[in-house]
Design a protein around this nucleic acid. Sequence first.
DNA 1: ACCTGAACACCGTTCAAGT
DNA 2: ACCTGAACACCGTTCAAGT
Lengths: 174, 174
Amino acid sequence: MPAPERTSLEAIVAAASDILEASGLDAVTMQAVAARVGVKAPSLYKRVADREALVRLVADTATERLATALERPTTLAEAARAFRAFAREHPRSFQLIFSASADPEILARASAPVLRIARDLAGEGDALNAARLLTAWAVGFVQMELAGAFQLGGELDEAFEYGLRGVERAITPR
Amino acid sequence: MPAPERTSLEAIVAAASDILEASGLDAVTMQAVAARVGVKAPSLYKRVADREALVRLVADTATERLATALERPTTLAEAARAFRAFAREHPRSFQLIFSASADPEILARASAPVLRIARDLAGEGDALNAARLLTAWAVGFVQMELAGAFQLGGELDEAFEYGLRGVERAITPR
DNA sequence: ACCTGAACACCGTTCAAGT
DNA sequence: ACCTGAACACCGTTCAAGT
């Protein structure tokens, strides 16, 4: 006898993402997610292999949102600022993206705009190395900012703009 | 009636660190740590407030080891390579250091050598900004390397050396 | 003074039984 | 076909009782 579906994979992932941002990864329990979509925990296993797979899906959708946020900018400065803005708006999603390694295909989507900007500045031959320098700096800066690891005072906004100028100089051929 | 001590805080933190590196943070359970020091889980609460405090202690000791590894190098290139070597030797400790924010005092110890190198290259006025650019790049690069996020091919060693030259150029006044 | 067994709350996961 | 209650294993934590 058929039974109507009372939820969906999209709703489950959205619920998990909401809980992640509101309360942290530890709060993303199968029971909390289930309750939010109006179902009991065991039902989640109809759409998701286990909690780890669900968290992975959350990371993938977050990576997709980041990729979308990076599509619009055209300059290095715009891209870096958009990247930092994303991390500040969705700090826990950001940390999840760069701790759990995301799906390679989605990662490639997020990398494409950075690679294009790097190529424009550094030239074809150094494009990949330049993109990695730029990405590493941006990831590290935002990560340390979110972790509260920059504690020696000084202006973080100023440090970010200084870094931005430095990275641009680093990848621009002399 | 007095009872002899069968373990110590140091032994507990060391056991937790070993389990972390061997099997990951999820494997650092109170029971696993207790078993390794030859005691039952409830006994750990005589020396440690709770699991979170224990993990924090593990992060702090790892940060201290990192600080020690950064004391010897004198140049930017040496420091960066020592940093990367530490991360590859203790990947899970490294990730713990930069996700859970460590103790400010210990963080300051690890920052000191970086700040000195940055000052030598960038000068007094830009020392802090330069240290932050350098640190952000190194943290981000190693983090992405460990997470397997650099997937577009190319040589990672080469990307690291390219980044190193770029960062040095970025923080050296023209 | 430290250690432990027992207990409790909570979580992930499975599965037979419902509809 | 999907949903759920019941059950199991496992974990963190507390505490009275041991020595």
